[in-house]
Design a protein around this nucleic acid. Structure first.
Length: 724
DNA sequence: ATAGGGTTAG
């Protein structure tokens, strides 16, 4: 509502009004304050009764950058019979301020009051539609347009193409396009951006070619859209062609176009050209900088990306997310989390893209507390849980060992896609719920979701981790016939794992010998792992040799071989391998355990002394040793392959990183709190034994995620059933 | 008296 003060007389510094015709004044008017003064003058002089005057006042409010739609509506309501110029302007105004629903209401009112829309009405009305309004009103408005005979107007056609591509009906949009005259470059632009919107970039490219054939000259906007498609398709050839267009047609390289060029070159990995354009720009905005940052992150060059990120004059949530995602791509999870903290300190609001990156990092680190915090943040800020966020949450919970919450997210998701189902099958499998994983798979089939290669790996993985050899074999045999999926090297690897872990080493070897694809080091690695569990040194030697032929630098193979020789008491052979390792300069990957406590991740390596609470940790360890021995513990050093005495071996396993992490967990959390640890390698037998006893003696649940699976220790036993 | 199209991240 208008207040009395708004209609007060103009301040003295403005020219006096009555002498000047109000229409020309409105044309040069700069602000709402000025407009209100002009308005009040026209009321005083009675000029307002000329309908052109309120119409112009309304037009100002509807068109001007600073125009106020409430004021427009107030003036509008004083008009007895507004004509369609006025109605059109009101509709345009509501669209301009991003209120498509108000624009639609205005349009409906117009019809109710018997004023016929004209060909200007529809472009105004449709301009700022959202997906929702487009879905809701699109068809009906199209009907009106046809009935009123405006469907041959090119502006209306363009608006319709825009409308249908917004509502996701690109093929209907294409129908309108095909029936249009195609002489107008904007028609092409709208159609191309429609294809981009629905990620049909190849169609965008085809239209660009066809445009050339039909000799429609592209505008800089066409080129921006086509460059965007090139960048998504990583099509450097067409991208360069567009660049040549810009030069040949002497199209002014405005910033948006330069940004699109940078993005295209960066996406195609040509950073030299991208930087060449970037360096020569007159002015750069946040998009120019972000395009360079993502260019480097896509190449895995996070250091360079970070240099540019740090130099940015301003950063928005996209830039932060791009940089965060860069660290994620190269598995630098701790940097992901610390950059996220910086982002929060800078008061930049994350969106669902950011959330996915952070959750993925939490999943890798097993950082449940931070993951839970993110979940709470998502709920509190009403960030929508789309399938990307949902799947990331499922992954996070499973990878932190919280099966129950993972399932809860899955059950609450409105749209579960193939990825969601696959995530659940995998999650159940690695957490020791093999039967449940297979049950999920049947439910997935019942829900008519088609499994893919990855889903099949999940199913086989479930069988492996729960020792369901027959079910695994049956599934494998039916993969092609029932699900139409040809087994690839990863599936054969699963079969080797399945048979090998169950002790069928010969059969596993047969699978390798008979597989139609060349076995890779992972397949042989599965066999080698099985040889360790079942202490078959001969087969192990053969498998190790195969791997070393493929990957001579694979340190893990030497270590595994050492473990096996140690367990089989083959000391001479052990020495040979040890010497080979020394000669070839191969080092063992140090074992490392992560534990999250009060929101930060603590990292331990064997014999760690750098933790600030080191003293307390070691005295807790001594205390544990006494308590556990009382419960029957004696150290198992069978896998230690260092050439040292028994006592030293005991002291070596005593200082393993997961034991330090457990001790730290015990002293830094209250009774009954679950201790969650992530280990980068496989757990050793002694640590596995200790964890079982800890869960019994201290009545604590201990969850250890190792390289391939979870160990849930409860009441003295483990979910892996000592089978890992 | 009034019209339309574009760039960055999973």
């Amino acid at each position: 509502m208008i207040s009395a003060t708004t209609l007060s007389p103009p301040p003295t510094h403005l020219p006096s009004l009555p002498q000047t015709p109000p229409l020309s004044l409105i044309k040069t008017c700069k602000s709402m304050a000025q407009l209100k003064q002009i308005h009040s003058q026209t009321i005083c002089t009675g000029l307002i009764s000329n309908p052109i005057v309120p119409a112009q006042i309304i037009a100002f409010c509807c068109k001007h950058e600073l125009g106020d739609m409430e004021y427009a509506r107030m003036v509008f309501d004083t008009m007895p019979g507004p004509n369609h110029f006025v109605w059109n302007n009101m509709i345009k105004g509501y669209s301009r301020v991003g209120c498509p629903n108000s624009a639609v209401s205005m349009y409906c009112e117009m019809l109710e009051r018997g004023v016929m829309p004209d060909e200007y009405t529809y472009p105004f009305l449709l301009k700022r539609f959202t997906r929702d309004t487009a879905v809701k009103c699109g068809r009906e408005l199209h009907d009106h347009i046809v009935k009123l005979g405006f469907s041959s107007n090119v502006f209306v056609q363009n608006a319709l193409i825009h409308l249908y591509s917004l509502s996701g009906e690109v093929s209907v949009a294409r129908g309108v396009f095909d029936r249009s005259s195609k002489g107008d470059v904007v028609t092409w632009n709208v159609m191309i951006s429609g294809y981009n919107r629905s990620k049909q970039f190849d169609e965008s490219m085809k239209l660009f070619d066809e445009m050339e054939r039909m000799r429609v000259l592209p505008s800089s906007i066409t080129l921006v859209s086509v460059l965007s498609a090139c960048s998504k398709l990583k099509d450097l050839n067409v991208g360069k062609r567009v660049h040549r267009y810009v030069k040949d047609l002497k199209i002014e390289p405005v910033r948006v176009l330069e940004n699109a060029l940078i993005d295209m070159y960066a996406a195609c990995g040509d950073m030299d050209t991208a930087l060449g354009i970037f360096d020569n720009m007159k002015s750069r905005d946040v998009i120019s900088w972000t395009a360079i940052v993502t260019g480097f992150t896509n190449l895995g060059q996070v250091g360079l990306a970070r240099n540019y990120f740090d130099k940015m004059p301003e950063r928005d949530f996209v830039s932060w997310t791009a940089m965060i995602d860069g660290y994620l791509q190269v598995n630098r999870f701790k940097e992901v989390l610390s950059l996220f903290r910086e982002m929060q300190a800078a008061n930049i609001k994350p969106d669902e893209f950011t959330m996915v990156s952070i959750l993925t990092a939490c999943a890798h680190l097993g950082a449940l507390e931070l993951g839970e915090w993110i979940k709470a943040y998502i709920d509190k800020n009403e960030i929508k849980i789309d399938s990307f966020v949902g799947n990331a949450l499922i992954d996070m919970y499973f990878n932190c060992g919280n099966v129950e919450k993972a399932i809860r997210i899955f059950n609450a998701m409105p749209h579960r896609d193939k990825i969601s189902w696959t995530a659940v099958i995998f999650g159940l499998a690695i957490n020791g719920y093999g039967e449940e994983a297979l049950d999920m798979f049947s439910q997935m089939l019942k829900a008519s979701i088609t499994p893919d290669e990855v889903t099949c790996i999940g199913v086989l993985c479930a069988c492996t981790h729960s020792g369901m050899v027959d079910k695994g074999k049956k599934f494998f045999a039916r993969m092609t016939t029932q699900h139409g999926i040809e087994p690839n090297v990863a599936h054969y690897g699963c079969m080797v794992d399945l048979l090998g872990r169950a002790g069928h080493l010969k059969e596993a070897h047969e699978v390798i010998k008979n597989m139609p694809v060349k076995p890779n080091s992972i397949v042989w690695g599965s066999l080698l792992g099985a040889c360790r569990v079942h202490r078959d040194e001969e087969m192990a030697e053969m498998a190790a040799q195969q791997i070393l032929e493929l990957e001579p630098e694979n340190g893990a193979v030497y270590v595994l071989l050492c473990n096996i020789y140690a367990a089989c008491n083959r000391w001479e052979k052990l020495h040979e391998v040890r010497k080979l390792m020394m000669d070839r300069g191969i080092k063992k990957t140090p074992g490392c355990s992560l534990i999250e406590m009060n929101g930060s991740v603590h990292e331990f390596v064997a014999g760690d002394q750098v933790h600030p609470q080191s003293k307390e940790i070691y005295s807790k360890l001594d205390e544990m040793s006494v308590d556990l021995k009382f419960a029957g513990y004696s150290p198992d050093t069978s896998e230690v392959f260092l050439d040292i005495g028994e006592e030293e071996k005991e002291s070596a396993v005593y200082r393993h990183s997961e034991k330090l992490a457990i001790a730290f967990g015990l002293i830094s959390s209250g009774p009954g709190v679950t201790i969650r640890i992530v280990k980068n390698l496989r757990m050793c037998v002694d640590c596995h034994y200790v964890a079982k006893l800890v869960s019994k003696v201290y009545n604590r649940e201990v969850i250890v995620r190792d390289r391939t699976r979870f160990h849930h220790f409860r009441h003295g036993s483990c979910s892996c059933k000592d089978y890992w």
